[in-house]
Computed example of a mutant assay.
Amino acid sequence: MVTPAASTDQILYKPEEAATVLRIGRSMLYEQIRLGRLRSVTIGRRRLVPPEYVAEYIALLKRESQAAA
């Protein structure tokens, strides 16, 4: 499990770690990646999520929330 203190030190999150940070399920995380809403990188066959892509996704959610209000 990822703690807030540990999450700031990581360079790349495993999908399960990124899902924990975002407080969503693993399936939802992969769906967001598939839709292009959350970017990720691949190294070989591994998919990883840089923290800055998590921050971009959060900013997207904020913009969508403000637009809906």
Rank of each mutant, 00 (worst) to 15 (best):
V2I: 15
L48P: 01
E31F: 06
E31Y: 11
Q32A: 01
Y53V: 02
Q66V: 12
Y30C: 03
I58G: 08
E56W: 05
S27W: 10
A6V: 07
E64Q: 13
L35I: 14
A5C: 11
D9V: 09
P15M: 06
R45Y: 09
V2C: 06
P4H: 07
V21F: 05
L48Y: 00
T8Q: 07
K62L: 11
A69V: 10
G25D: 05
L48K: 02
S40L: 05
I24M: 07
V49P: 00
T8P: 01
Y13Q: 00
R37Q: 10
M28A: 14
A68H: 12
E56C: 09
L61A: 11
V49C: 03
P15K: 05
R37N: 13
T20K: 00
V21M: 02
Q32K: 02
R37V: 08
S40N: 13
S27I: 12
K14S: 06
I33S: 04
Q10F: 02
Q32M: 13
E17I: 05
S27L: 12
V2E: 01
G36M: 12
G25P: 04
R39V: 06
E17L: 04
Y57Q: 01
A68Q: 12
E64W: 07
E56Q: 08
A55W: 00
P15Y: 04
Q32C: 06
M28K: 14
E64P: 05
A67L: 08
G25N: 08
E64D: 14
A6K: 09
Y30W: 09
T20Q: 09
L48V: 07
A59D: 13
A5K: 06
R26W: 02
Y53D: 07
R23E: 14
K62F: 10
A18W: 02
Y13R: 04
Y53F: 12
L29P: 00
E56D: 15
V54F: 02
M28D: 13
A69H: 14
I11S: 12
A59S: 13
V54Y: 00
R46S: 14
K62D: 09
M1Y: 05
I24L: 10
R39K: 13
R26S: 12
A5T: 14
T42S: 14
I11Y: 09
P50K: 02
E52V: 10
S27Y: 07
S27K: 12
E56L: 02
L48S: 02
M28V: 13
S40V: 03
S65R: 13
A6C: 10
V41A: 01
S7W: 00
Y30R: 07
L29K: 02
R46W: 11
Q66G: 09
A67H: 11
R46Q: 15
Y30H: 10
V2M: 06
S7Q: 06
V54K: 00
